[in-house]
Design a protein around this nucleic acid. Sequence first.
DNA 1: GATGAATGAGGTTTCATTCAT
DNA 2: TATGAATGAAACCTCATTCAT
Lengths: 188, 188, 188, 188
Amino acid sequence: MARVRSPEKRSAILQAAVHEIAELGLGAPTAMIAKRAGVAAGTLFTYFASKEQLLNEVYLELKVEVYARINADFPHKGSLECRARHTWSNSLDWAIEFPEKRKASVQLNVSDLITPETRARTATERGTIDRTLDELGTRGALRGLPGGFPAAAMSAMQEATMEFIAKQPKQRKELMERGFQVFWRAVR
Amino acid sequence: MARVRSPEKRSAILQAAVHEIAELGLGAPTAMIAKRAGVAAGTLFTYFASKEQLLNEVYLELKVEVYARINADFPHKGSLECRARHTWSNSLDWAIEFPEKRKASVQLNVSDLITPETRARTATERGTIDRTLDELGTRGALRGLPGGFPAAAMSAMQEATMEFIAKQPKQRKELMERGFQVFWRAVR
Amino acid sequence: MARVRSPEKRSAILQAAVHEIAELGLGAPTAMIAKRAGVAAGTLFTYFASKEQLLNEVYLELKVEVYARINADFPHKGSLECRARHTWSNSLDWAIEFPEKRKASVQLNVSDLITPETRARTATERGTIDRTLDELGTRGALRGLPGGFPAAAMSAMQEATMEFIAKQPKQRKELMERGFQVFWRAVR
Amino acid sequence: MARVRSPEKRSAILQAAVHEIAELGLGAPTAMIAKRAGVAAGTLFTYFASKEQLLNEVYLELKVEVYARINADFPHKGSLECRARHTWSNSLDWAIEFPEKRKASVQLNVSDLITPETRARTATERGTIDRTLDELGTRGALRGLPGGFPAAAMSAMQEATMEFIAKQPKQRKELMERGFQVFWRAVR
DNA sequence: GATGAATGAGGTTTCATTCAT
DNA sequence: TATGAATGAAACCTCATTCAT
């Protein structure tokens, strides 16, 4: 048997990609990503067929990661507000904890390099969360709005909140809660 | 470089840049932008010192344009809600009317190429609007949150709303109003 | 007006390509070709869209060159044998005079990079010659064989002859004539 | 590298090389050759020290194969014409039966990768045939021409004939015989 | 000022070959 | 010995920018 493809290396490349994208944008050279991952330039292409594919996988990994965190101790039996707050806090926590990941995620989000297929593949992981958020869509203020709107609204409000937490990290706790309250008033 | 002969050419380049960025992202080649603008590749650099500067000016132009539209018939004497709704509608209208501009604007927004100076320069035009939005920050739900939060919140909610209008253009009117109501419930 | 595209440069690139292909085969790097032509690596691509296109143009140029030489003082009124001998001698002369061109030509000939379109484009120049050779096809030994056969036969016999002239350049004259006689006995 | 375990593998690699060269030219990647041969990329290099050596061996194998076929039922006692015709037919048959082999052979022939040593090594197998063809060189039209000329001439005429058989496979028999007659008129 | 050819650094990707397993 | 991941030197090509015209 030959040397076996190492998940660590693959992971290192993805991580390096996140870092470089956060720093240099989507134009970050694959050579630089490889270097930071501690592998040769050519090695990157044994793990990812092309830069575009690498970017798609980075996108996927980041999405999966947030959703995994939210799902981890999700209060399935909690009230709607409780579940919404859980989602709100956990994804914000992630974004604050890993600013590079968040930055890369944002860049990838607005890019046309991410294929519809890739975007679709995140649906699986989003299941639980979407169900909660969609429940919002059947009540109160959001009744009648298209499916997905609550999720989009939350994501949007988080974006806004995050910006301010980034500027005033000390008030993180408070801003996070106030942000949620604003959101909750809007949608409940 | 200094004082430039033809404002038409300058304008054509900016417009072409918007188009190409919308289509190809920030990696859009200057040569292609020049071509679409109907000028030679080199000419672009007599109007803009570098690609980076061009991008900054595009960003500025787009911001100025939305703000100008909002300011045009701004109901200075209207109620707070009235003024907020005016802002909401007009900027959404602009985004819907010029999808390319919106797309370019989003890309530029998340890019590190846009300098803090450039971002600061939009402040002037934002004056009236910000005053309205900040008024929101002194009352109700948003009291105590940092300045700029209302603007960020609106922008974020608009982003979400826009996404859905793009998917279901027929319900544009309704979605725009519903979106505003959600926002308004949150902040009033 | 800007600097104008110079036929000299184009020509230098083609010539350099011939040299490098003769030396290194079709894998000759474009960078090396450019260098030998005295232009920057990138410049090559303002004259030829791709390496493949460059190769096609080299092929064309070489063909055109031989045919031009044959056509130059073609004995239109001469006997069939006279015309055949003229064709034979002149193309052999060219091949002997420019061994690099011949070598490049051979390599390109057997390559799949040369498109049918390019091959077709040589037909124009081949006109006079083909008419002579096809005349052979209507008489004597070749009657009934498909059109193009005489040309192929001559080309093949020349190839063989050339090989020996290359080995014994001193007997060039004699070998050329003997070779023709062999060919002529075959086809007359 | 030294003595090698499996002749089957060696053979499979050679065969795969023929196929890939016919399809992609001499630039065919070793990895692709290995894949088609059903072995790992690295394995190829335990059978052949380098790509260049592999190519030389392919060349050799193909030559040996044609010569073997001609030698198989060679009419040693036949007339000169009979022996010449045998040679003509059998090598043409081979080329027609295995177009890939022929194509690879042509590519290798014009390449500088094939060393003089390799070319020389085909001499052994060519023995019988050359003796026949050289006999031609002592008589009639070819008297006085350098040794090897008859062989080259036949090869050349075959090349021409083959081209047309490829285009009109139905008339294969007839074209083959007519081609020989043309050749024979030239050299007898 | 306008043009677009020229430049060459740098980008992505390929590939012969090596080497750990 | 067989494997195929790892390597890194090129290869082709693009592109922001300069500069002769």
